[in-house]
Amino acid sequence: MTGAFDIILCLMILGAAGIALFVRDALAAIAFFIAFGNLLGLAWLGLDAVNVALAEIALGAGVTGVLLILARARLLALGDDATCADTSAWLRAGALAACAGFVLLLAAAVLSIPPESGLDRAVAPLMPGLGIENRVTGVLLAFRAYDTLLESFVLLGALVAVWSLAPAGVWPGRPADLGVADVPMRRVARSFGRFLLPVALVMAAYLVWAGSDVPGGAFQAGTVLAGGLMVSAIGGAIGLPRSDLPGLRVALVLGPLVFLLIGLAGMGFGGFLVYPEGSAKAAILAIEYSLFLSIGATLALLVAGPNVIGWPDPAGGTDRHSDC
C-alpha cells in the first residue's frame, strides 16, 4: 500500500517540477514551484524524515515562494515579465542528450547502493551522552556542530551580500516598503500579521524546545518566525528596520556569536565545539534559542531585499537613486 503513495507522489513531484521549469508564464512557474516545494515536504514525510519535512515545507514552500513572488513583482515593475527567449534547437538537443546520459549514470549509481540507515547505528549509542533523543539535532548540534556553525555564518553572509547590492549612497537606508497599497488588503494583512506574529513566536519557541527530543529545531523555528515577521511587514503592523539599528545588528549576530563563543568555551573541555560533560543539552538549547532569533530576522530581511529607501543624512541629502 505505501508503495502506491510513494510512486504517485514521486510522479507528481516530477510533473510539478517539469511544469514549474518550462511553463511560459512566470507566476505559473512560481505557483508550481511552491506546489513542488510542498510535495517535496510530503516526500520527506514519506521517508519518515520529519525534521527535513519541516525544513522543506517551511523554507522551500514558504520563504522561497515569497522570495520569488516578490522578485517577479519587482521585475514586472521594471518591464521584465520573466518569460524565456527560445533557444536554438541544437542547444536543446545537445543539452537533452547530455542530461539524459547524466540521469542514466546517476540512476545506475543510485540503484547500485542499497539504501540502509548506516550511521543511525553509529549515532544511537552516543545519544544518551548528550541528554537529547532527537538524533538529527544531535548530529546537527553536537557531532557535526562545525557544519551548523558555518551554516549560520553563511546565512549572515548572504544578508551582508544582499545588503551590499544597495545602490551607492543609500546606506544605511531601509529595504523597499513591503506594505500593501490597497487599503482593504492592508487591513486584512495587518490583522493576519497581528494574529500570526505571536502564534509564530510561540510555535517557534515550541519547535526549538521540542527539537531536542522530537522533530523540530532552530532552523525550522526561525523560518516560522520569519513568516510571521514578513506578514506583519506586508500588513504594515511592523515597519522594516533601518539597517544600522544597533538592536537589529545584535539580533542578527546573536545566534552565530553565541554558537561561536560556546564552541570556543569548549576548548577547555577537550576541543572546539566540545560540550562539557552532562550539560550538553543546556548548551544545545542555549545555542538553538539564540540561533532561531537570528535566523528569523535574517530570513525576513533576506526576503525584504537590498536597501532602497535612503535615510536623510543630516550631513548631505542622500537622494534615493544616485546613479551607481
Binding site: 490597497d182 482593504p184 488588503m185 486584512v188 494583512a189 493576519f192
Partner: peptide, 8 residues
C-alpha cells in the same frame, strides 16, 4: 485570510 485577499 487567503479568500479575502484573493477575492479583493
Amino acid at each position: 485570510i487567503t479568500s479575502q485577499l484573493l477575492a479583493r
